[in-house]
Write a protein that binds this DNA or RNA. Structure first.
Lengths: 194, 194
DNA sequence: ACCTGAACACCGTTCAAGT
DNA sequence: ACCTGAACACCGTTCAAGT
């Protein structure tokens, strides 16, 4: 039976989640789809384009509407949702991060960030810069968080009183930086809320 | 004559700057050093370790003292210096960014960030979180900035009224996010400076 | 239109053996 | 101690040829 674009993305996502980004090769993917490596190049021009499609799939939940009504609530919600998307699949953060860099994913998160900041009353060009800033933070933080998770689950034997080991809850750590960011926006808006 | 660790790093840095990270392979590096690929594995256990040493070399200027006396001036200066280090070599930001993730570089920037924030009066654990936040921003921004530079210098022919093309000066864009961050810190410190 | 077969031009890493 | 020679086990991509 026929191999469709979506089947290829499905297969790629399965390999990613089970074996990680390093093992997501065109040859291996072809193997699990019971097809020759060259067949994949009829559906995608190259590996980067395939990874872009995988990233889009991972980020699909970013399109759903947001419940918060105030701008800072909406921004916090969107940032958390982006992090959740990235944490859903193994190496999801790393994959999306590198795909953002090569600019062949429709960067859904960033657009929604910026419109939330525009709704807060910031001029469009500044709002876009702010959205980038938040995006860099979420990606950087989550890549780091996820790579630590994998290091821990691998070498749970190690760490004989190495460092304080950051006992704090990862979500609380994430919120700290997020609050730093929203406070910065609020200051920029001149909202002396008192 | 003998091949030393530093010669290997020198050669790697030269390839990086001229041909980019994708062309920085062990075999090619061995070639420019007039040595067999296997020889490199006497000096470094693997490629990641070599890249870590290259990253450390790129970040060497981060050890120099800072001129600003106030914490926000010091932080701004350090952030700019980190960006400058990353922009000095082709693909420098990408290399350092991926090396930070695999945690085998002495992350000089982050430590200096956090001690600046501690000097501002923030408790150590919070200051470290703040330092990470700033680090993610600088890395994310600079990777993006540098990859755009390369896209522009490659396809200067393209861009027929594609987007507004972000006419703003890259340094000004960088400063915007940086100010968002320092404002966030200032707010956290409760410094109602008036 | 969609895929196979087979090749091209590479990779990182290991390791006996040489000097 | 430091390196060579040669192999092992892979990569992404292309493309004539098949159906």
């Amino acid at each position: 039976m026929q191999l469709h674009r979506d089947d290829v993305v499905d297969g790629a996502l399965a390999i990613l989640d089970q074996y990680g980004l390093a093992d997501l090769t065109m040859r291996r993917l072809a193997g699990t789809l019971s097809v020759q490596p060259g067949a994949l190049y009829w559906h995608f021009p190259n590996k980067q384009a395939l990874l872009g499609a995988v990233a889009d799939r991972i980020l699909a939940p970013m399109d759903r509407p947001v419940v918060a009504t105030d701008w800072s609530g909406a921004l916090t919600e969107l940032a958390h949702r982006l992090r959740d998307c990235l944490l859903t699949y193994r190496d999801g953060a790393e994959l999306v991060s590198s795909t953002y860099a090569s600019r062949l994913t429709t960067n859904k998160g960033r657009e929604r960030f910026s419109s939330a900041v525009i709704r807060a009353g910031m001029p469009r060009d500044q709002a876009e810069l702010a959205a980038y800033t938040l995006l860099y933070y979420v990606l950087g933080h989550t890549v780091d968080e996820q790579s630590r998770m994998q290091m821990d689950s691998a070498g749970a034997l190690a760490d004989p009183a190495g460092e304080p080991a950051d006992a704090t809850d990862p979500t609380a750590r994430f919120d700290f930086g997020l609050q730093l960011f929203t406070a910065g926006i609020r200051h920029r808006l001149g909202a002396d809320a008192h």
